[in-house]
């Protein structure tokens, strides 16, 4: 995976300005929901509950109208999913003491699914939360403004940086640089003409940004106002309550219901 692909993947996380019922939910409520899913995903290691968890979020993606972006992210995580699956199979085979290959595969699949569920819930959060609003919610949760500003600015500059990287690569290739030529060490050296302008420009850009910020009264008042204030409404509380109910049900299931594994079902 090259540097540029990495930036493109990050670009996939970029918020797109559409409006939907999910977009309108307060990020703090959404955050509670993500945490709830996180908790449930960690709680279970069987395939059936994880599958239910995975499928139950698909309607949310559709309501939020971010299907295309979401699919792209899931596709982007397949490489890591495959890695997790392979690692699980190998380690369980050698150290696991599992009765059969089928159960090893099932368990590894469950672990992989857990990873995908985590990616899924995170991506729903980021795809439906404007970084501005997210920054604002961090601010209202008491996190220092400097940090929130750094966060939103970083996000704001991802597309700019991706474009700049592309331009620099083009400029050097136009002068005969062949990135894919030579042995391992040579290939790494090939990236020097790209990295140096990238760093120099990043420094120059940050100085210009700092200058512009200073010129617009950065740091003038200890008590900074924000044009917007987040207010939790009825819908948001509903969302939090649903999240808590999900947690409670899962704990109940975990304690009192024995979940069969696929291998067991197949044997019946």
């Amino acid at each position: 995976m090259s540097m540029l692909d990495g930036l493109r993947l990050l670009d996939g996380l970029r918020f797109r300005n559409i409006s939907s019922p999910i977009h309108k939910i307060d990020p703090r409520a959404k955050f509670v929901y993500v945490c709830a899913l996180f908790f449930v995903a960690i709680l279970f290691n069987q395939i059936i509950p994880l599958l239910i968890l995975f499928l139950s979020q698909v309607p949310l993606v559709i309501i939020a109208r971010v299907k295309k972006e979401w699919l792209r992210l899931i596709r982007g995580s397949i490489f890591f999913a495959a890695l997790i699956f392979a690692m699980n199979v190998i380690s369980l085979y050698f150290y696991g003491g599992y009765p059969s290959l089928a159960s090893i595969i099932e368990h590894s699949l469950a672990m992989t699914l857990r990873f995908i569920v985590l990616v899924e819930s995170f991506s729903i959060f980021f795809l439906t939360t404007s970084p501005d609003i997210f920054g604002l919610s961090l601010e209202q949760m008491g996190i220092p403004y400097e940090f929130c500003f750094a966060f939103t600015t970083a996000i704001r500059f991802v597309p700019v940086l991706a474009e700049e990287t592309q331009t620099i690569m083009d400029a050097q290739r136009a002068r005969g640089l062949e990135l894919e030529s030579g042995g391992f060490i040579k290939r790494i050296r090939n990236y020097i003409p790209i990295l140096i302008p990238l760093i120099v420009n990043a420094i120059r850009r940050s100085l210009e940004l700092a200058e512009a910020m200073e010129s617009r009264a950065w740091g003038a008042s200890k008590k900074r106002t924000n044009l917007y204030a987040l207010k939790m409404g009825g819908k948001d509380y509903c969302f939090i309550i649903i999240s808590i109910i999900i947690i409670l049900i899962s704990i109940y299931v975990w304690l009192f219901i024995k979940i069969p594994s696929i291998t067991q079902i197949m044997q019946l």
């Binding site: 083009d170 400029a171 136009a174 020097i192 003409p193 302008p197 120099v200 120059r204």
Partner: peptide
Amino acid sequence: RKVGFVFQNPDHQLF
């Protein structure tokens, strides 16, 4: 070799 391309911003190539 045949086509020289000078980009807009020199900082995108100087290293």
